[in-house]
């Protein structure tokens, strides 16, 4: 049986479990909606005072923020197993995964699917629509495809980061907080186009961790600040980031097998 079918089975069980606690599900979803709302408020108040930053207007920043948030919440919903991997290691669930004849990654993904993240995604979608209405972007099919590529590439990059986080859990359960720089930090500071943080940050986010490939460059294409034909494809290039992440994960599993949960 294919991995996809098995994932579907996991997914259905998760939906069924979530529906056991409808009120709690609803409240958490609303909570998810609220928490990122603060970030939006931050942007809103700043633009009550300023008209543009680094040449980006309010509605343009909104488009950038909402797409980044969608990327993040998609990754967070489906790759939640990696996001909470320290728990899976410390409660012995990973031992259970190892005694089953299936790929470890598939099982980890299936074991946690966080449907309440739909709250965050919904908010991002609403802001996206709001941004579209406020902005003067003339939409065409190539721009729409660029957004789609951004969502795919962005989900991949964030998932890769979660994967790195999980791989580190094999070595230590302490000090994982610094990974927040790369995950939550990217979500938090990805609200503005990366160029506003200066040249060096932009270089780091282009060549080390490809945030700019899923945010700044394609956004520039959509906003017609740069019309190079290859800008829309940069988010797809960012998917390559998953390769080193997977290697690190493999290395982590290897380490786990030689030290167990000690």
């Amino acid at each position: 049986m294919g991995g996809l079918r098995l994932y579907k089975r996991y997914f259905l069980i998760q939906v069924k479990s979530a529906m056991q606690y409808k009120t709690s599900f609803l409240l958490t979803t609303i909570g998810q909606f609220l928490t990122s709302f603060n970030v939006f408020l931050g942007i809103y108040f700043m633009f009550q005072r300023f008209h543009a930053v680094e040449g980006f207007t309010y509605s343009e920043v909104l488009l950038c923020f909402s797409i980044t948030l969608m990327e993040f919440s998609l990754a967070e919903a489906f790759f939640r197993g990696f996001d909470t991997f320290s728990g899976i290691i410390s409660n012995g669930e990973f031992d259970r995964i190892m005694v089953r004849p299936r790929n470890e990654i598939l099982q980890v993904l299936g074991s946690r699917i966080e449907l309440t993240r739909i709250g965050r995604f919904l908010q991002a979608a609403v802001l996206f629509v709001y941004g579209i209405m406020k902005s003067h972007v003339l939409w065409s099919w190539d721009k729409a495809v660029t957004v789609l590529f951004m969502l795919i590439g962005g989900t991949a990059v964030f998932s890769g980061l979660f994967l790195i986080y999980a791989a580190i859990c094999f070595f230590t359960l302490e000090g994982l907080e610094f990974m927040n720089i790369l995950t939550d930090g990217a979500r938090e500071y990805g609200k503005y186009p990366i160029s506003i943080y200066g040249k060096r940050v932009l270089q780091f986010c282009t060549f080390v961790i490809p945030y700019a490939l899923i945010q700044y460059y394609p956004i520039c294409y959509i906003l017609e600040k740069n019309s190079s034909w290859w800008y829309p494809f940069l988010p797809l290039l960012a998917i390559l980031f998953l390769i080193p992440c997977l290697c690190l994960w493999k290395f982590g599993v290897h380490h786990y097998k030689s030290t167990g949960s000690y």
């Binding site: 069980i13 479990s17 056991q20 012995g92 031992d95 259970r96």
Partner: peptide, 13 residues
């Protein structure tokens, strides 16, 4: 494998 202290069943279904 049965780990007596942990469950392999899904709690809510």
């Amino acid at each position: 494998v049965v780990f007596g202290q942990r469950t392999q069943l899904w709690w809510d279904v």
